[in-house]
Amino acid sequence: MSDIDKARLSEFFGREFSDGEIEAYGARLARQLTGLERLRQWEPELGLIEPAVVTRILRTAET
């Protein structure tokens, strides 16, 4: 985790992380950063997607 890009962390989380935090959060922080990077890739395609109903995942499969 010591090689995690602190600038990328700051860009995606909106704040700086101390070395102690990076150490404590371990691989979790890298997983979150990857997730946020992928999220940003998809956001431009969300324009027409209706945002509600997040728990009825199998809406299309229920019938």
Binding site: F13, G14, R15, E21, A24, Y25, G26, R28, L29, Q32, G35, L36, L39, W42, E43, E45, L46, I49, P51, V53, V54, I57, T60
Partner: peptide, 27 residues
């Protein structure tokens, strides 16, 4: 503890967007 503390770093917008993208990718 690490899960909770690191999870608190995520913002409300991150979570909502994750659920919106989730729906799109699931479909």
């Amino acid at each position: 503890r690490a899960l909770v503390e690191s999870g608190e770093n995520l913002g409300a917008v991150h979570y909502i967007q994750a659920q919106r993208v989730r729906r799109k990718l699931c479909e």
